[in-house]
């Protein structure tokens, strides 16, 4: 009986958590806003000069190298052969990349909804050797990483690749 009562009490609570259509944020309120990808004009995968790590992402270790994802932008390649003096060697620009794994000197990395296979035999001459279409759907698409109000994604604007906290006048979705 007690359990039933609790359950009844819990239902409206949960409902409130999921969606509150009456909410209109004040002008000064922050809410998550979808960042859409322009999938028609993607930059190619290229090896570029080193650059500062600004939006640090996942890490991976392979042989004497350390890799760190720059969220949604690509991978920093760091030579750690001298453990006291690790050195950034290059930046592998991969549009909308967040994940990676390496085997036999080939890196498996996501880009939008695809998995790319990139030849790293010479890390300073990295090149794409295979693309598996629609193998790994982008994670960010439906809702932001934290609970709260957010601007509902509009599929007609393209794929949601990220979320940014911004002042908004209206944020109707919530979770």
């Amino acid at each position: 009986m007690k359990f039933l009562l609790l359950l009844l009490l819990a239902i409206p609570l949960c409902y409130g958590c999921l969606r509150n259509p009456d909410f209109h944020a004040e002008r000064s309120d922050l809410a998550f806003v979808p960042v859409y990808a322009d999938t028609h004009n993607l930059r190619p995968v290229t090896l570029e000069a080193t650059r500062p790590i600004t939006n640090a992402g996942k890490i991976y270790v392979y042989g004497n190298y350390i890799f760190q994802n720059e969220q949604n932008e690509g991978i920093h390649i760091i030579d750690n052969s001298d453990p006291l003096h690790p050195e950034k060697k290059a930046f592998l620009a991969i549009p909308f990349n967040t994940e990676m794994a390496i085997r036999a000197s080939h890196i498996y990395a996501n880009s939008i909804n695809d998995i790319l296979v990139i030849d790293l035999i010479n890390p300073l001459k990295a090149q794409v050797v295979n693309r598996i279409k629609n193998a790994f759907p982008l994670i960010a698409q439906d809702y932001p990483p934290e609970s709260g109000y957010f601007v509902c994604p509009d599929p007609s604007k393209g794929i949601v690749v990220d979320w940014k906290l911004e002042p908004v006048t209206e944020a109707k979705c919530r979770r």
């Binding site: 890490i59 991976y60 392979y62 794994a101 390496i102 085997r103 759907p137 994670i139 439906d142």
Partner: peptide
């Protein structure tokens, strides 16, 4: 022949296989 990822990874390689988890 494969490397090592962190505990927050969504890709991992065991032997000749790549395992991925999406949502």
């Amino acid at each position: 022949s494969s490397g090592k990822g962190g505990s927050l990874a969504r890709f991992t390689i065991v032997g000749n296989y790549l395992y991925t988890v999406d949502r």
